[in-house]
Simulated scan of single mutants.
Amino acid sequence: MPAAEITGPVQLDALGPRGPYRTRVPETVTDVSGAGVARLSLVPPVYADRALSALRAAGPVSPADLDALLGAAGEEFATGTVGGLGVLEYEHLCPLARARPLAAHLKSVAAGTRAWLGADGVVDDLGDGSAVLRPAVHQVGHPGAAQLRVELPFPNVWVAPWSRADGTAVLRDTLVLSALTRDRALVDALLAEPGIANVYVGDTPTHWMAPGVPHDGYLSDFLMRGKALAGPRWPPLSAA
Score class of each variant (00 low, 15 high):
R134G: 02
A51K: 10
A136E: 00
T79C: 05
L148P: 03
V32F: 07
D128M: 02
D128H: 03
V46R: 14
H215Q: 10
L15W: 14
L180W: 15
A57Y: 04
G80I: 02
L40T: 07
R225P: 06
G141T: 12
S163F: 11
H92T: 14
H105T: 15
G127V: 01
T181W: 03
V199C: 04
A3Y: 01
L93S: 03
P232G: 13
N198G: 03
W234S: 15
G112H: 04
L186K: 09
P232D: 07
T7K: 13
D125M: 07
H92M: 13
R149V: 10
F222D: 14
A197N: 15
A146I: 06
V157P: 00
P232Q: 12
V123P: 06
A179L: 08
Q147M: 14
G167R: 11
S220C: 11
K227F: 05
R184Q: 14
G129D: 00
L85G: 01
A54S: 08
G118Q: 00
D221P: 04
A192T: 12
Y21D: 12
V201R: 10
D65F: 00
S62W: 10
N156F: 09
A35F: 04
L229S: 09
L180C: 13
R114S: 11
A68N: 11
R233K: 15
G121F: 04
A197E: 15
A146C: 05
A64N: 07
G141M: 05
L133K: 01
F154C: 01
V159A: 06
P63I: 02
L85K: 01
A14T: 14
Q139Y: 02
T79A: 10
D125E: 13
V132N: 09
A38M: 06
V140K: 03
D216N: 11
V213I: 14
L191G: 02
L171N: 09
A119M: 04
A228M: 08
A111P: 05
V213S: 13
A97F: 04
P235E: 11
V123F: 08
T113I: 05
I196A: 02
A228Y: 02
V61G: 10
A72Y: 04
F222A: 14
D166S: 08
G217I: 04
G212K: 00
Y47L: 13
L70K: 12
D183V: 11
A73D: 12
L42D: 09
D216G: 10
P26H: 05
T7W: 06
D173F: 08
A145Y: 00
G19I: 06
L223W: 13
D173K: 13
P155F: 00
R56D: 11
V87C: 03
R233E: 15
A54N: 03
A35V: 07
L133V: 06
A99I: 00
W116R: 07
P2M: 05
V150F: 05
R39S: 12
A97N: 06
V150M: 10
L70I: 11
M209I: 11
A240G: 13
L85H: 02
T168M: 02
S41L: 04
L106A: 09
S238N: 15
P63G: 01
G74N: 09
L117C: 08
G167L: 09
V199N: 03
M209H: 09
V137G: 00
A97W: 01
G8C: 08
L85E: 00
H92S: 15
A110F: 01
